[in-house]
């Protein structure tokens, strides 16, 4: 019987051209490498065989890559697809791509760029890749509000809206970016209890 407890069963942090899973560094590229090249290196290292990756905007690439890292060895495949949710937040929404799209308008506006001028498209990309069909929400907040995230997601579990989810912070604006993505489940052998302190702890390097 579900007793209301929810656990953090994995974390992925991407920052400063490094990728970490559960606090362990898995990939490092030179810091001077620019974001597109770093993302390509991450794709080659963790995935490959998904050409649609190259068409995504940096926000989608970052979220998609973090999900790839988190789910590669232990996917959430034991849950019904309809009950796996995605709850993300960031500061700049899709502004990074909005500006590039705006730039293309001077010539001929690019449909492929316009598609990414919404922050929630990153959740669409992750859902397409992993077949997740559960609840989605994308919040824009100044800083990563862990208390808020925990409160919101706990309610989703209480309502039975989800039985597992990916959640976290996926931010990019120009060269500056940061990802903290978490896997949260009802059952979590050895996992951390899902609360704000543990979100911080799980992502500490």
């Amino acid at each position: 019987m579900y007793n209301g407890d929810v656990y953090i069963t994995g974390s992925c942090v991407i920052r400063d051209n490094r990728v970490y899973r559960d606090g362990v560094q898995l990939l490092e590229t030179p810091r001077e490498l620019e974001l597109p090249e770093f993302l390509r290196a991450g794709y080659d290292h963790f995935s490959g065989q998904y050409p649609k990756f190259h068409k995504m905007d940096p926000l989608s690439k970052l979220g998609w890559l973090a999900a790839e890292v988190l789910l590669k060895e232990v996917p959430l495949s034991s849950y019904p697809r309809e009950s796996v949710g995605l709850i993300l937040a960031n500061k700049s929404a899709s502004l990074d791509t909005d500006l590039r799209y705006f730039d293309s308008v001077k010539d001929i506006a690019s449909p492929a760029l316009f598609v990414y001028t919404l922050p929630n498209i990153v959740m669409g990309e992750i859902s397409i890749r992993h077949g997740f069909k559960g609840e989605n929400a994308f919040f824009t907040t100044d800083v990563f509000d862990r208390e808020f995230m925990v409160g919101y997601i706990s309610q989703l579990f209480l309502e039975n809206a989800v039985s597992a989810c990916l959640c976290g912070w996926v931010e990019v604006m120009g060269p500056a970016y940061e990802v903290m993505l978490y896997k949260v489940e009802r059952t979590g052998d050895g996992g951390l209890v899902f609360n704000a302190d543990n979100l911080q702890k799980a992502a500490s390097i």
Binding site: K55, I108, S110, P111, A112, V115
Partner: peptide, 11 residues
């Protein structure tokens, strides 16, 4: 979306 981009390409 690729189809739309090809339309842009032709233009």
């Amino acid at each position: 979306i690729d189809a739309l981009e090809i339309i842009v390409l032709l233009q």
